[in-house]
């Protein structure tokens, strides 16, 4: 429970953080809310030599109406997203999901940027962002680039971010209705055994939590919906082609079953919010 020793630096700006990061990208880690990184360090599963604390970098915590989309600063904490008026009005899915993460302590420390950059398939916000067809903005030594959510989640704890890049903004399309989130867990504070984020406005998008090595879409369901299937039939294909893991809390078989039930419930609920 005591991490290996490391050097701690507190960045005052994105530029400063990027500068330090570029000195030795492979053994330097950004520290945002610390609620994914520090547990790994305490178990000595991560042993970065340098921690660059971006937690106090000004200007990166916001939820803004940007006309055709909503822009969210990477350092926005889950709790701030949960109670944001802009999010509640324009992307209620995101506000709702932020309120389902962990417990109050976690929600007051963890950031959306950290949650996405961590790349954990069991996390909730990545699925919401994927369902919302988001664009992720990263800054780095080679400048700024925009990454589609579809290209962002690559594998277990693996994203499209380069080690010397920092995620700075998340842009999501507005989806005031036609959404739903289903989270199935053992305890209220737990990670999802399986979760589902569904957005039905526009092309229906259904993203899954913990149904594989990364956050992914229920392509089978989406295809069925596009072909006009009803929720039950579309949901029956939720786990098509997916290989979730087996662990202490659930077998792969059970996860596949849960996905079909939860996707059906999400589709029915999302349709209901559309009125």
């Amino acid at each position: 429970m005591i991490p290996a020793s490391f050097e701690y630096r507190r960045a005052g700006s994105v530029e400063e953080a990027l500068g330090w990061l570029s000195e030795d990208p492979d053994s330097t880690k950004l520290l945002a809310g610390g609620h994914s990184l520090l547990p790994l360090m305490k178990l000595r599963l991560a042993t970065p030599g340098v921690l660059v604390d971006v937690g106090r970098v000004p200007g990166l915590s916001y939820v803004r109406d940007a006309g055709d989309h909503v822009a969210i600063g990477a350092l926005t904490r889950h709790r701030d997203l949960e109670i944001s008026e802009v999010a509640r009005a324009s992307v209620p899915l995101l506000a709702h999901v932020a309120g389902q993460v962990g417990d109050p302590q976690v929600r007051h420390r963890g950031t959306i940027g950290g949650s996405l950059a961590h790349g954990d398939p069991a996390s909730d916000l990545p699925a919401a962002v994927l369902a919302l067809d988001a664009t992720l903005v990263a800054d780095g030594p080679r400048g700024r680039r925009e990454i589609a959510a579809d290209d962002f989640f690559r594998g277990f704890l693996e994203t499209a971010l380069e080690p010397d890049e920092m995620l700075t903004e998340i842009r999501v399309r507005k989806a005031p209705s036609g959404w739903a989130f289903q989270k199935f867990n053992r305890r209220a504070q737990d990670w999802a055994i399986v979760g589902v984020a569904a957005v039905l406005d526009g092309d229906p998008r259904v993203a899954l939590v913990n149904m594989g090595s990364t956050t992914l879409r229920a392509r089978g369901t989406e295809e069925a919906l596009a072909a006009g299937a009803d929720p039950t039939d579309a949901a029956a294909r939720a786990a098509d082609g997916l290989e979730p893991s087996s662990d202490l809390h659930a077998s792969a078989e059970y996860r596949r079953h849960l996905a079909t039930v939860l996707v059906r419930r999400a589709l029915v609920e999302a349709a209901a919010t559309r009125g």
């Binding site: 178990l43 417990d103 053992r186 305890r187 209220a188 737990d190 202490l248």
Partner: peptide, 27 residues
């Protein structure tokens, strides 16, 4: 909720409170 789970070689699998599920008031 709770169980101290072992694998067949006698390794304790539930060594953190993320794996050993102590319920909270919210449950």
């Amino acid at each position: 909720y709770e169980e101290a789970s072992y694998d067949e070689r006698g390794n304790l699998l539930t060594t953190t409170l993320a794996d050993y599920l102590v319920p909270a008031a919210s449950d």
